[in-house]
């Protein structure tokens, strides 16, 4: 895992300066770090604890509470499939199996080349377009076997 660059530290410092209290920028800063490192490392947490001037335990509690943050690197492309009730009714489970088959991994894992990781997610707020997919923070509605094939090809 690479350490933070000076440029990156600057971005994080901007989050710490944006809201009425520095610590209010923590969740956004963690989102940023997760995007850069595809996980939040011990080193990142130590840096954020210093930046926000709070005990490390607080950072680790937040980083392990929210599902957006991981302690182990996700794939370069993080694919989530919604398992909420509406999406389940629309067949999210068979979409998940389809993705598992195409990627050759089980839900919760990453491909050996680090290109994809697959996870099931709770409601993505796109119930009318089920089964909903989430690809790198972007919502994709109404997944079909075909659309999934196209999608995977597009993602490097």
């Amino acid at each position: 895992m690479s350490a933070l660059t000076l440029e990156q530290e600057k971005v994080l410092k901007a989050w710490a300066a944006r809201y009425p209290a520095p610590i209010m920028g923590l969740v956004e800063a963690l989102r940023q770090v997760q995007r850069w490192h595809r996980c939040v490392t011990d080193e990142d947490e130590e840096y954020l604890a210093r930046l926000f001037d709070v005990p490390r335990v607080r950072i680790h509690e937040v980083a392990t509470f929210f599902p957006s943050f991981t302690q182990k690197p996700t794939g370069r492309h993080r694919i989530g499939i919604c398992r909420g009730l509406s999406c389940s009714l629309a067949g999210s489970q068979s979409m998940c199996s389809c993705l598992e088959k195409k990627l050759g991994i089980k839900e919760g894992a990453s491909t050996p080349d680090g290109r994809f990781s697959l996870e099931t997610m709770e409601c993505l707020g796109a119930c009318e377009q089920g089964p909903a997919l989430m690809v790198n923070d972007e919502l994709k509605g109404a997944a079909t076997e075909e659309s999934i094939s196209h999608l995977l090809e597009e993602l490097e």
Partner: peptide, 11 residues
């Protein structure tokens, strides 16, 4: 922070 399954009107 709309997250309840079945709700998407805020989006």
């Amino acid at each position: 922070d709309e997250s309840e399954p079945g709700c998407f009107k805020d989006r």
